[in-house]
Computed example of a mutant assay.
Amino acid sequence: MTTRNPPAISVGVIGAGSWGTTVAALTSANTTTRLWARRSELADEINEHHTNSRYLSDFALPEQLTATSSMEEIVRSSDVIVMAVPSHGYRDVARDVAEHLRPWVPIVTLSKGLERDTQQRMSEVTAEEMPGHPVAVMTGPNLAKEIIREQPAASVVAIDDERIAGVLQRLFARPTLRVYTNPDVIGCEVAGAVKNVIAIAAGMGIGMGFGDNTRATLITRGLAEMTRLGLALGGELGTFSGLAGMGDLIATCASVQSRNNTVGRRLGEGETIDEIVDSMNMVAEGVKSCPSVLDLARVAGVEMPITEQVVAVCHEGRSAKDALTALMERDAGSELR
Rank of each mutant, 00 (worst) to 15 (best):
G211W: 10
K112H: 14
I250W: 03
G270R: 11
M83N: 07
N52K: 07
A173H: 10
D96W: 06
V256W: 06
A8R: 07
V197L: 14
A254V: 13
G113C: 14
A320R: 12
V137T: 13
L296E: 00
I200T: 04
D117S: 15
M204Q: 09
Y55H: 15
L143V: 02
V263G: 11
S57D: 04
M71W: 00
A16D: 13
L249P: 01
A202H: 03
G264H: 14
G15T: 01
V287M: 11
K195N: 04
L171S: 01
A29Y: 05
A199G: 06
T252D: 02
T2M: 15
M138Y: 08
R39A: 14
I147E: 14
S292Y: 07
M328Y: 13
L177T: 10
A201C: 09
A25G: 06
K321V: 09
M304P: 08
C253G: 10
D58W: 00
A251Q: 13
K321N: 13
L229Q: 10
D322N: 08
V310T: 00
T181G: 13
E73K: 06
A153Q: 09
G264K: 12
A43E: 08
E41T: 05
M304S: 11
T32L: 07
G230H: 01
L233W: 05
E329L: 15
L168C: 05
T3D: 11
